[in-house]
Computed example of a mutant assay.
Amino acid sequence: MPNWSEFADRALAGEPLTRDEARAVLAAPDDALLDQLAAAYRVRRQHWGNRVRLHFLLNAQSGLCPEDCGYCSQSKVSAAEIEKYPMLAREKILDAAERAARLKAGTFCMVISGRTPGGRVFEKVLDAVREVKARHDLRVCACLGLLSEAQAVALKEAGVTQVNHNLNTSRRYTPDVVTTHTFDDRVATVEHVKAAGLKTCSGGIVGMGETDDDVIDLALSLRELEVRSVPVNFLIPVPGTPFETVRALDPRRCLRVLCLYRFLLPSQEIRIAGGREVHLRSMQVMGLYPANSIFIGDYLTTQGAAARADLEMIRDAGFVLEAPDGSAYAGDPLADLPESYPRAPLPMIHV
């Protein structure tokens, strides 16, 4: 059996695992899981203490996407029953930002469907970002599809802190997931974001039928690109999508993936993203030992856990919320949260 504590030592020293060692993390038996989590937490604690960063998602433009991503309910090949609408009015976006602030989220993530934003939509995004920044102490993350460096610069000037653009899977497996763009197209957008001086946010989706080596290759690509924030999604097989019959995950598999990503990406923000509630289920809190971030509220086209339940989970495990400035949140986050906080009117996934 590998010595997981030695894996933590290597991660803390900045040394990557070998491929065989990475495979061993994913192939470990269930009785090794607690030791893996303890080792991963030692790395997480060194870089992030016991803080948990919260992100809030807004699906600001839904459906009608020309891409053919097999996992996505908004793609042109999806028959999923979802709401489809153009770019939301600014006031609706500001209402969502208010909800994010009330839920103690440090980052407001604004997402639009589509391959790349058109000129009018992009200007609306910039306008909304400026207004959100003027009203709230929130980091703003934009997820807008493929971007040029000039667009990334414009987002930074408007007040965007980071841009999300997931690689989604390995270079090898990408053609099995999507044919309307390439792995290199996605890498180029991440590089444009980095060149503009924005924080890079890029991760993937696990459970789409990929191999262990694909999971490892994705992490290594993110490490090579020096991505700073890594959302790890777990596939929700939405009815009506090409991947609706894919069933490849259980809670222990998900936790092993999170441990591996902490070993390979020791200082990065690792976020448990779409599929957390579906696949980790009663073991969700254990994901906070390797990961240091979650979404609160809903996802893009699927509903998340109730905000109160998430905040109680964080508190009960002895973790503390991270404030927008990176410090520990002062006070009880549940103190001014209504017993039944209204759900976002536009449920959400996979960002």
Rank of each mutant, 00 (worst) to 15 (best):
D212P: 07
L155R: 05
L222C: 08
T169I: 02
L222N: 09
N168A: 03
L147T: 03
G204Q: 12
T200G: 01
D184Y: 06
C143G: 00
R223L: 13
G204I: 11
G204D: 06
K194R: 10
A158V: 15
D185L: 00
T200Y: 04
V153Q: 04
D214I: 09
T174P: 06
A195N: 11
V187N: 02
A142H: 07
T182V: 05
K199A: 12
N168C: 08
E149P: 05
T200N: 03
A219D: 07
P175Q: 13
G203E: 14
G207Q: 10
K199M: 15
L198M: 06
V153L: 12
I216N: 05
L198A: 08
M208Q: 12
V187W: 07
M208V: 02
T161L: 00
V193T: 03
T161D: 06
S148C: 00
E157D: 15
D213Q: 07
N164S: 15
V193G: 01
K199C: 15
A152H: 00
G159V: 12
Q151N: 07
E210M: 11
C143F: 03
L144W: 00
V187S: 02
V193M: 00
E224W: 10
E210I: 06
E149F: 01
D184N: 08
D213V: 05
V215R: 06
L147S: 04
L222H: 15
I205S: 00
M208P: 00
A195R: 12
V193A: 04
V160I: 10
V177G: 03
L144C: 08
A158M: 09
D185G: 08
S221K: 13
R223S: 14
R171M: 13
P175Y: 10
L218E: 01
D213I: 09
T161N: 09
L167T: 00
A195M: 15
V163H: 04
G204P: 12
C143V: 08
E224M: 05
A152R: 01
V187D: 00
A158K: 06
K156Y: 15
G209D: 02
R223C: 07
C201H: 07
